[in-house]
């Protein structure tokens, strides 16, 4: 790796780290369940990006497998979470007095 690409890699690591921190903040803050799922999805995409940077920095192609597996798992988990949220919505629709939305994810 020569100077240009390694400088770009350092800048990219800084941006990815900032993005990961912001995504974590949204994951903690919420305020509702879909916000957290979206934040988790974005964090998985950030992890894929970080794995790509690892491949470029170290030259080990094994991190690429990590990126592929991460994208598979994040898709499956997002679909599962979405089904779960639909189930919560269905249950709330059947309740006479559903609890406040912030407590909908019990």
């Amino acid at each position: 790796m020569n100077g240009l690409v390694s400088v770009a890699l350092w800048l990219a690591w800084a941006m990815i780290s900032a993005g990961f921190a912001i995504g974590l903040a949204r994951l903690v803050k919420g305020p509702s369940l879909p916000d957290r799922i979206v934040a988790l999805d974005m964090l998985a995409l950030t992890a894929i990006a970080a794995a790509c940077l690892m491949v470029l920095g170290t030259g080990h192609a094994a991190y690429l497998d990590f990126a592929m597996v991460m994208s598979l798992i994040s898709f499956l988990s997002t679909v599962a979470f979405a089904r779960y949220v639909e189930w919560v919505a269905l249950r709330r629709a059947r309740q006479a007095e559903p609890p406040p939305l912030e407590q909908a994810d019990d």
């Binding site: 912001i22 995504g23 974005m42």
Partner: peptide, 8 residues
């Protein structure tokens, strides 16, 4: 990726 995080 950073723009996605800022948007979130």
């Amino acid at each position: 990726a950073l723009i996605a995080a800022i948007g979130i």
